[in-house]
């Protein structure tokens, strides 16, 4: 290529020449624009934290840490303690995990190891579509179909069989912690399944082939090689599912009964942080009340932020260890 200027080679080394060439080609403004967009993602995450912090100053100053450890929620007397809602959130989410983990791993094993090729893609798609059903439709179905058809009969059975266990104390309500947990379990199942399946598929085949060569049955290979090797990835999947369960709002609001009932019974109504915010935000009449709800949002934000960071690091570590790339 002919250089327009004989001194072209020389100016390549000089700073101003290099800058001009860069700028003239339009690379600098383009890079600046896309870098700005990229940094904006980070800025948004930080800004969410900042806004929640700034808009919850009144209750933070008034109650301090007692906000997290007391259980009086009385807007009329301006007393706000979030403990029952924190417990309600953790209780329903953990119960959902207990139901969804074994099911999710089982389905992931089937999808990654056993399903015939023609079934793998359609079945995977169907399960991922479950994650696409809007939360409000889950709530509608849960309220009018799932509770009367499944939860209430199940609750009655549990109550009559184990009424001596405080967890199954009567009377049996339809909208209850059990209902919320079961709906949540269904909602997080696709998350756990999809991530676990991807972790299984990312593992190198050498170890499982070695297990077969040593005479292991397929199940022994799965239980002693595949699952132990994927543990940190499965843990990541579980934490991602937990994050989704903790923050799930509308479906839970519709089926949990919204009552800060302090009994241990799963068959009674409960209340979660997210459903409290959804229910009371538009009715909150004074500044402290609104800010107390935003502080609950802050607690929820911090918990889900930490969980997501841990989960991502775990899943990334698995992906990097085995594929050398990024996932």
């Amino acid at each position: 290529m002919q250089s327009p200027r004989p001194s072209g080679l020389k100016s390549l080394g000089s700073t101003t020449g290099r800058f001009r060439r860069w700028w003239n080609h339009g690379d600098l403004p383009f890079r600046a624009a896309i870098a700005l967009a990229g940094i904006l993602v980070l800025v948004i995450v930080l800004a969410i934290g900042r806004e929640l912090w700034a808009h919850s100053i009144l209750p933070r100053e008034k109650f301090g840490l007692a906000f997290l450890t007391t259980s009086t929620w009385d807007p009329v007397r301006q007393q706000f303690g979030a403990l029952p809602f924190i417990i309600g959130t953790i209780e329903t989410s953990v119960l959902a995990l207990i139901m969804a983990i074994p099911a999710g791993i089982g389905v992931a094993i089937f999808l990654a190891e056993l399903a015939p090729d023609w079934l793998r893609a359609p079945l995977g798609t169907l399960i991922e579509l479950l994650a696409a059903v809007p939360s409000v439709v889950f709530g509608l179905w849960g309220l009018f179909v799932f509770i009367p058809d499944v939860v209430k009969p199940l609750g009655n059975t549990l109550h009559s069989a184990f009424s001596f266990v405080p967890l199954f104390d009567g009377p049996v309500y339809g909208p209850s912690r059990l209902a919320a947990s079961m709906i949540l379990a269904i909602m997080i199942l696709p998350t756990i399944t999809a991530v676990t399946r991807d972790v299984f598929l990312a593992l190198p085949r050498t170890q499982s082939e070695a297990a077969f060569a040593l005479g292991a049955t397929r199940w022994e290979m799965i239980a002693r090689v595949l699952v132990p090797q994927s543990l940190s990835g499965i843990l990541g999947a579980v934490i991602l599912g937990l994050g989704r369960a903790l923050g799930e709002t509308i479906a839970v609001t519709m089926v949990i009964g919204n009552n800060p009932d302090l009994s241990a019974s799963l068959l009674h109504p409960g209340y979660t942080m997210a459903s409290l915010i959804a229910n009371e935000f538009s009715e909150a009449t004074n500044e402290t009340y609104v800010q107390a709800l935003i502080e609950i949002g802050l607690v929820l934000f911090v918990i889900t932020l930490l969980l997501n960071m841990i989960a991502r690091l775990l899943v990334w570590r698995v992906a990097r260890r085995f594929t050398g790339g990024t996932a």
Binding site: G247, E248, T304
Partner: peptide, 11 residues
């Protein structure tokens, strides 16, 4: 990006 996608929609 990953963290943002995990923050609950109510937040």
């Amino acid at each position: 990006t990953d963290v943002l996608s995990g923050i609950p929609s109510i937040i």
